[in-house]
Design a protein around this nucleic acid. Structure first.
Lengths: 170, 170
DNA sequence: CTGCATGCAAAGAGTTTGCATAGCC
DNA sequence: GGCTATGCAAACTCTTTGCATGCAG
């Protein structure tokens, strides 16, 4: 991609401005996480980065993730019975999580901030952060039949995971 | 409490209707989880139930939680860098999570369903479950100063955990 | 009585940490 | 060159599983 150089130099600047050293491993890890939209797991980052840096270790992945979180570049998404996934989108948004293909899509909604502001006001609760996930079936999986399970945990039924979200009558 | 007998017999019925045996341990575990509003961890359930059933094991806590989830009585709430917490409220609602005292309060909002229905429609995504958390500072902690950290992880700064929620400008 | 549930301990998964070496600044 | 970051492996935390015994139905 044409702008990979731009991304890379901005990553280097960000690390140095925060007092971190910009090592090749950190740059590669950050470049992958910040440019993908697939909300990867730490293991996924590990296997992707290993293609270019075969000696990289999982410990370095986790340390770099922690640094990126510390610098406000990244947040983590936890779900019951599944690994933590990473999200470089720091704007208020919600997640559409497909039970079938395990894909996580971001959805920006203009009304969300108003909604939150009203709840914050009514509940007398000063909101500093949010996390909004909708679980369900994406259009692609409804159209395409079985869907792409490449990101799904092998052999695990997705309906079991649905039990961890408040049911919504459809 | 006066209705503990009612809760107990309804727990027994629920287990038997689903083909589970209603053992004293399961009844005690379920009674505690279903009647508390503090969204306990498995460890908290363990220590509470041990008061009446000193020989109960953590494995039984976890298998009972799994049974309750299976019966649709319970969901789990995961947050980065903290243990899974339990929520017996199965109605669509959102969570107000205080960074200071670690308390989790439920908030029912009449507009939430409309909001979700609209997103579902616009995104062409069939919603089956939801998870909506707001992180911030509760009124009690703002009024009372330091707040009650009895549920907070010892020695851990709560600001670190805030990094895992999309920042909201206040 | 029959078979599921319990309690114990050990295994598992994901993540973190300790330490000697490597390499950024 | 000083000092942080790396890579390896071992430790850690939370959760799950295997198995012999116990007890609900």
């Amino acid at each position: 991609m044409a702008e990979s150089g731009d991304l890379e130099s901005s990553i280097i600047k960000t690390f140095r401005n925060s007092g971190y050293r910009a090592t090749p491993q950190r740059i590669a890890i950050s470049r992958y996480i910040l440019s993908t939209h697939e909300h990867p797991t730490a293991q996924k980052v590990f296997s992707e980065v290993k293609k270019d840096h075969p000696t990289v270790s999982l410990a370095t992945i986790y340390t770099t993730i922690k640094a990126l979180k510390d610098m406000g570049m990244l947040q983590e998404l936890n779900h019951p019975q599944s690994e933590t996934r990473l999200d470089p989108n720091m704007e208020p948004h919600l997640h559409l999580i497909c039970s079938r293909c395990e894909r996580i899509s971001d959805w920006m909604d203009p009304e969300m901030e108003d909604f939150i502001a009203r709840v914050s006001d009514e509940a007398d609760f000063v909101v500093t952060g949010l996390r909004f996930d909708l679980k369900g079936i994406c259009k692609r999986c409804r159209d395409g039949g079985k869907g792409d399970r490449s990101l799904a945990a092998a052999g695990e039924s997705s309906s079991a995971k649905d039990a961890d979200y408040t049911a919504v009558k459809v």
